[in-house]
Design a protein around this nucleic acid. Structure first.
Length: 565
RNA sequence: UCCCCGGUCGUCUAACGGCAGGACAACAGACUCUGAAUCUGUGAAUCGUGGUUCGAAUCCACGCCGGGGAUCCA
C-alpha cells in the first residue's frame, strides 16, 4: 500500500522520454503544446496539455506553448487569449516559452528555398482540382505533375515572386518532390506552401504565402529544439513526411521525433473544435463557456476544478488504442476533490412547505451547522430556524415504500442540525396535490440528537421560509444520450441527437441565507443534492447556481432502478 | 482494397518471456445527523488458430475485428 505510487508504471510516451534521457540522447526533455487557434480548448486538449507539461514537470524539462497559426482563414486572436487563460487555469506555466509558428515564417521560407535548390521541391502550376485528380487513390499511385522537373532556378524565381505577391491565390503552390507512387499518401509530392490573400492575425498582410502544416510543424519543432513531438494518432501517417522535411533541410541529429497517442473520447459528448463551434454557432448552447460544453471554459463555469481535471487526465492514462472514457469517471474525480474542499450549505430545489405546528410563530433561533465534515478547519456557521420551512418534495411520500427513511404521515425524521419532527398532517389542494405538510417538533432534540437515545434513520435538509434566499439553479444533463453521438448520428448530423432536457432551470430554489452574497465562482455542496458553483450571472442577493454534478445517490437506484441512468 | 496502427474485466489501464493487478462502474454488507463520505467483501478480462519456449497477454505466422490515411485544414 505504501509503495503503490512509487511503483506506478510510466505510460509509453514517458517511458520513451525516460529512456532517451537515460541514454543521454538529450540533456533535458523539451515538449510542446501546439494548438491551432481556431476554437476553444476542451477536455481532450487537457489530456495533451497534461501529458506535455506533465513530462516537463516530471523530468525537469520544459514545455513550450506554440500557436500553430499557419492558416489565417480560421484563426482569431480571441482564441489565442482564451487558450492561454485555460492552460493557466489548468495549472500549467510555459514561462518564457510562448511561441507562434508565424514567428518562423522567414526561417521557413529560407528552408523552402533550400529544398528548391536541392531539387527536393518545385513550383507547381496545376490547379487545386488538377492536383486532386492526379493524387491517385488509396490503391493506385498518383501521377506526376508536369512541373515536377521544372529547373530549380525557375522554381526559385517563381517562389520569390509568390512571396512578392505577384500571383493570385490558387495559381501556384510549392510542392515537395518525393514520390507520387508512395503508398503513404502524404508523401505524394505534398504541398508545402500555398497563396492566400487572407490577412494574418499577427503578420497582417506581409505574407501572401503560408506554409502547410507538415512543413511548418516539423520545422517549428526543430527550431525550438523540441525533443519529443507528441501528437494524436491521426498524424501517424504524416510521420514519414515529418522526418523527410527535417532530414532534407539538413536539421542535424538528434532531430525531434514524433510520437502519437490515442486522443481522449468521452461518452455522451462530442470533442471536436469544429463540432463544438457548430453548437455555438447554431445557438444550441449559450456559448463556448456554456456549462454543458466539454470546453475547459465551460467546465470551469460549471464548477469543475483544475485539480479534478488533472487527476482525470492522469487517471485515464496514455496509450495507442482507441478509447472512450465514461463520463462517470470525470464525475468521480470532481466529487472526489470537491468532497474535500467544498463548503456545505442547505438549499431546496423543489420546495414543499413544512409547518411546525408547535413551534411558536414569532420565534426563531440560529443553529450551528458544520461547514465541511471532511475539514474540521472549515468551522461552523449559524442557520436560522423558524416555524415555516421549505423541504424537498422528494423527501415526503404519503405512501412510502419499504426502505423509505424520509418523511411520511406519522413518521419522525431529523431536520439536519435542527430538530426531530413528526409528520402529523398532509394538506392537499382541490386537485389532491400535496401542498403543505404539518408536523410537531420535539423541543428536547435541539441540534438533532434525542436525549433518550432513540435512533432516527432519516435526515433531511431544510431552509427557513422566512429567511430563505431565492436563487436560480441550473441543472445539467449531458448534451447527448448516446455513448458515441458521432457514431450514432446519421450523415454526421449530430444536431438532431441533442437532448431537449440538457438544461433545466429551477426558479426559485430556496437557499439558506449564508448564500445570499456568495461570491461568483464559489464551489459548494448543497447537502444531499450535489456540488454547485456560483455563476457569473448572479446578481446581488440573488445567486445563480450551476449544478456541477449530483452526489452519488444510492436511494435513487433503489427507488427507480430503471430511470436512474 | 493499398499503407499504417490497435485489440486484456462493462469502461479505462498495468504486467517489458515467469502469480493477469489497479481504477471507474456494478453488486452485497458495515457505519452514518448528507441514502454523501468512509470501511469490508463479491462478480468481472488476455479476439481466434497454430507455432517457438520448461514457461506466452507478451515473441512468430495466419486469420478475425476495430481505427486512421486521398482538404491549397490542423
Amino acid at each position: 500500500m505504501v509503495e503503490e505510487s512509487e511503483e506506478r508504471s510510466l505510460d509509453f510516451v514517458r517511458q520513451i522520454v525516460a529512456d532517451d534521457l537515460a541514454k543521454g540522447k538529450f540533456r533535458q526533455s523539451v515538449t510542446r503544446f501546439p494548438p491551432h487557434p481556431n476554437g476553444y480548448l476542451h477536455i481532450g486538449h487537457a489530456k495533451s496539455i497534461c501529458l506535455n507539461f506533465g513530462i516537463a514537470q516530471d523530468t525537469g524539462g520544459v514545455c513550450h506553448l506554440r500557436f500553430d497559426d499557419t492558416n489565417p482563414v480560421a484563426e482569431d486572436p480571441h482564441f489565442v487569449d482564451s487558450m492561454q487563460e485555460d492552460i493557466r487555469w489548468l495549472g500549467f506555466d510555459w514561462g518564457e516559452h510562448l511561441y507562434y509558428a508565424s514567428d518562423y515564417y522567414e526561417q521557413l521560407y529560407e528552408h523552402a528555398c533550400t529544398l528548391i535548390r536541392k531539387g527536393d521541391a518545385f513550383i507547381c502550376d496545376l490547379s487545386s482540382e488538377e492536383i486532386a485528380e492526379r493524387r491517385g487513390t488509396l490503391t493506385e499511385p498518383g501521377e506526376a505533375s508536369p512541373f515536377r522537373d521544372r529547373p530549380a532556378d525557375e522554381s526559385l524565381d517563381l517562389f520569390e515572386r509568390m512571396r512578392a505577391g505577384e500571383f493570385e491565390p490558387g495559381a501556384r503552390v510549392l510542392r515537395a518532390r518525393i514520390d507520387m507512387g508512395s503508398s503513404v499518401l502524404p508523401m505524394r509530392d505534398p504541398i508545402l506552401y500555398r497563396i492566400l490573400d487572407t490577412p494574418h492575425h499577427r503578420t497582417g498582410n506581409t505574407w501572401p504565402i503560408y506554409p502547410m502544416y507538415d512543413f511548418a510543424h516539423s520545422l517549428s519543432d526543430a527550431i525550438e529544439h523540441i525533443t519529443h513531438s507528441i501528437c494524436t494518432l491521426e498524424f501517424q501517417d504524416r510521420r514519414p513526411l515529418y522526418d523527410w522535411v527535417l532530414e532534407r533541410v539538413g536539421i542535424p541529429e538528434p532531430r525531434p521525433r514524433q510520437y502519437e497517442f490515442a486522443e481522449l473520447s468521452l461518452s455522451r459528448t462530442i470533442l471536436s473544435k469544429r463540432f463544438l463551434g457548430q453548437l455555438v454557432g447554431e445557438g444550441a448552447v449559450a456559448g463556448w463557456d456554456d456549462p454543458r460544453m466539454p470546453t475547459l471554459s465551460g467546465m470551469r463555469r460549471r464548477g469543475f476544478t483544475p485539480e479534478s481535471i488533472r487527476a482525470f487526465c492522469d487517471g485515464v492514462g496514455v496509450a495507442r488504442r482507441d478509447n472512450t472514457i465514461q463520463l462517470e469517471r470525470l464525475h468521480f474525480e470532481v466529487r472526489e476533490h470537491l468532497n474535500q474542499v467544498a463548503p456545505r450549505a442547505m438549499g431546496v430545489l423543489r420546495p414543499l412547505k413544512l409547518v411546525v405546528e408547535n413551534y411558536p410563530e414569532d420565534r426563531e433561533e440560529e443553529l450551528p451547522a458544520v461547514n465541511n465534515p471532511q475539514d474540521p478547519q472549515a468551522g461552523t456557521r449559524l442557520v436560522p430556524f423558524s416555524r415555516e420551512l421549505w423541504i424537498e418534495r422528494d423527501d415526503f411520500l404519503e405512501d412510502p415504500p419499504k426502505k423509505f427513511h424520509r418523511l411520511s404521515p406519522g413518521k419522525e425524521v431529523r431536520l439536519r442540525y435542527a430538530y426531530l419532527v413528526t409528520c402529523t398532517e398532509v394538506v392537499k389542494d382541490a386537485s389532491g396535490a400535496v401542498v403543505e405538510i404539518r408536523a410537531r417538533y420535539d423541543p428536547e432534540t435541539r441540534g438533532g440528537d434525542a436525549p433518550d437515545g432513540r435512533k432516527v434513520r432519516g435526515t433531511i435538509h431544510w431552509v427557513s421560509a422566512r429567511h430563505a434566499v431565492p436563487a436560480e439553479v441550473r441543472l445539467y444533463e449531458p448534451l447527448f444520450e448516446e455513448e458515441d453521438p458521432m457514431a450514432a448520428a446519421e450523415d454526421g448530423d449530430f444536431m438532431k441527437l441533442l437532448r431537449a432536457d440538457s438544461l433545466e432551470v429551477v426558479d426559485p430554489a430556496w437557499l439558506e441565507p449564508s448564500l445570499g452574497e456568495a461570491p461568483i465562482g464559489l464551489r459548494l455542496q448543497l447537502e444531499r443534492l450535489g456540488y454547485f458553483s456560483v455563476d457569473p450571472d448572479s446578481t446581488a442577493g440573488r445567486p445563480v447556481l450551476n449544478r456541477t454534478v449530483t452526489l452519488r445517490d444510492s436511494w435513487a437506484k433503489i427507488a427507480k432502478p430503471k430511470a436512474s441512468r
